[in-house]
């Protein structure tokens, strides 16, 4: 593979070399420079929903502005400040808004503490209204881009926006893989296996799945629908999945 051109940029007065096409956030993280963010995940394209990764940039031509570092590609001669006074004050409001939206979320509380914010001046939402969801759509993006089934999406608009399955009903597309649970930055989606049943609970809808039993150890290890999906995508037989991962070795 052809190597991309390298560019030189400055982040927090450190001169760095970075491959053209990378985003500021990736380069900063590679160099151990902390920029807070909730909605990024290396498995999916950047989206810019949580806005917490805002940084102050000065371009080579001297233009200054605030950009979301997850969506801004590095360029020659760029100067980035990740922790100026201006950034701190903007970030403070952002995290305070999230604190008011999800009063229940430990992740947001912890992040606020890390950013030196203790309280929010905004009225707290009812804990049951948004649950712990910040609408970053990371779950929906993983479901579409990685799993490839697009079972969940953001629905409605404005203050009524929610993350849900179509019609708030059990989705025919969902395979119960739990990827959305795994990537959710605020643990707003829950998954529980009891006996041969798996339950996935999104903030505003939920589903149940039947699990398959491993023929060797007898533990329930994978939803039937996930087997169907994997078998279909890979062209293998659904019977190939009678034995769980641990027993196959």
């Amino acid at each position: 593979m052809k190597k991309n051109k390298m560019v030189t940029l400055t982040i927090d007065s450190r001169k760095l070399q970075a491959e053209e096409g990378l985003m500021i956030l990736d380069v900063a993280r590679d160099n151990n420079i902390y920029i807070p963010s909730l909605c990024t995940n290396e498995a999916v394209e950047p989206y810019g929903a949580c806005r917490l990764c805002l940084v102050e940039i000065t371009t080579a031509r001297g233009r200054e502005r605030l950009v979301t570092s997850c969506l801004y590609p590095v360029e020659e001669g760029l100067t980035v400040k990740t922790n100026s006074e201006r950034i701190a004050s903007v970030r403070k409001v952002l995290i305070q808004l999230l604190m008011a939206r999800c009063p229940d979320s430990e992740v947001i509380q912890d992040l606020a503490k890390r950013l030196g914010v203790e309280t929010t001046p905004f009225p707290l939402e009812d804990k049951n209204k948004n649950k712990k969801c910040i609408l970053c759509a990371l779950c929906a993006r993983v479901c579409q881009e990685v799993v490839g089934v697009s079972a969940i999406s953001l629905v409605n608009r404005g203050v009524n926006r929610q993350l849900a399955t179509p019609f708030f009903e059990p989705s025919e597309a969902c395979i119960g893989c739990g990827s959305c649970v795994y990537v959710c930055p605020t643990h707003a989606i829950a998954m529980e296996d009891t006996g041969d049943k798996r339950e996935v609970r999104w903030p505003h809808s939920q589903m149940e799945f039947k699990l398959r039993k491993c023929k060797v150890c007898g533990s329930y290890w994978i939803p039937e629908r996930q087997i169907e999906h994997i078998a279909q995508v890979s062209g293998t037989s659904p019977d190939d999945y009678d034995v769980c991962f641990s027993c196959r070795e």
Partner: peptide, 14 residues
């Protein structure tokens, strides 16, 4: 188009 996307669009516009 996935149903989730159709539903997302259908609920977005007034």
């Amino acid at each position: 188009v996935p149903l989730s996307q159709v539903y997302s669009v259908a609920t977005f516009f007034k």
